[in-house]
Design a binder for these strands. Structure first.
Lengths: 200, 200
DNA sequence: CGTTACATGTAACACTCGTTACATGTCAAC
DNA sequence: GTTGACATGTAACGAGTGTTACATGTAACG
């Protein structure tokens, strides 16, 4: 059975997903849930406690969704960046990621107020995606670049809502990486041949 | 001669660059400048008016710096992305760009409050950098990607302060684009030769 | 010297904020 | 039926917000 607090938490998650967390205020929040600010403080001790619990709840929800996606695609590897992108912009995950980006950015502006929420969210996407890179390409610069591409495109999506163009940009990036890899391999082959010729 | 308002504006710019604009409040601001909230309202009509004028002033300052950079490098083209990046992270420009990114992100969260400041800032970087792409590569996907790389890396720089790693990521991206271009050209050449052979 | 425009400070207003004191309701257990 | 834990509402407190009313200073001009 769900305790009153759990029910409240679910409602709070829904509210936060819709309204974001930068202007969160107890009274309007309580009104929207049909209750009073007093009750929220009663159950969560403080506004900060409320945020902590609600964000934690969101994070577990998101982790489960991510785990499910990984499991489903277990065998078929390839284009992990695209897989991850598609997962991130799916209707059921997008609002959560959007909120986490809001959090990340609020923390940059105001680490004192928001920093410690972020530390609980160990969800460092770039590291996650990085494991998908072939080891030869997993340099710090490449990992940073990969993370930045994801962040930059997701923020662009948040600003403009243009799923199509941002997704094409993801694919453009993948193509770029592939073509560059091919080019490198071709050079290696040629060098090898030349070296053989010289030796032979 | 500088009017009192212009002097104030300069001081306000300095204050904003240091404190960001998300928790801007008139009284602490006035205290920091050694004056009163009353005076700020007197000169700028309202908090919103103040922000508008100060952000405008910052924008013109930034545009001049950008123009100067372009002029200095007029002849020597090549790696415009790297040029732009180096300009953006230079000590004298970085705080301005940081603030504009703060603004951009506040606007995503709260368009009602911050959206119209952004509209005055027509500084759409991606369009600017895009003009540096060879026309053949100036597809919407590539332009979006380029902008996202810049945004993502700049935000990473804002979060971590790691100039070195983010700059290496910029160079990694440039290398990627170059290698991919070479690969495409190589394929074209081969196709052309094959086609000649067939014809000949 | 008086007037007039600009500049500035003090104190208040009306509001919102997170939080709390106090009262009351509900409902199961003894 | 009374006790006691949980749940909830109303109203207030103290602090902070942007803004304004009112008074005062400064300095140039007639």
């Amino acid at each position: 059975m769900q305790t009153r607090k759990e029910i409240l938490t679910d409602e709070l998650v829904a509210y936060l997903l819709e309204h974001g967390l930068s202007d969160l205020s107890l009274r309007p929040l309580a009104d929207a849930l049909g209750t009073s600010a007093r009750l929220l403080i009663y159950h969560f001790e403080s506004k900060e406690g409320l945020l902590t619990e609600v964000l934690d709840s969101m994070q577990t929800r998101l982790r489960m969704s991510f785990g499910g996606m990984i499991e489903r695609r277990a065998g078929q590897s390839g284009r992990p960046l695209k897989l991850f992108w598609d997962w991130a912009i799916a209707d059921e995950n997008y609002p959560y990621l959007k909120l986490l980006y809001e959090l990340q950015i609020l923390a940059v502006q105001n680490p004192a107020a928001y920093g410690h929420y972020l530390q609980r969210n160990t969800s460092n996407w770039s590291e996650l995606i990085a494991t998908a890179l072939p080891e030869a390409e997993r340099t710090p610069a490449m990992v940073t670049l990969l993370g930045a591409v994801f962040d930059g495109l997701f923020l662009e999506l948040m600003s403009t809502g243009d799923r199509k163009r941002t997704t094409q940009a993801v694919q453009q990036f993948i193509r770029l990486v592939d073509e560059a890899r091919d080019a490198r391999l071709a050079v290696q082959k040629k060098t090898a041949k030349a070296s053989n010729t010289r030796r032979g």
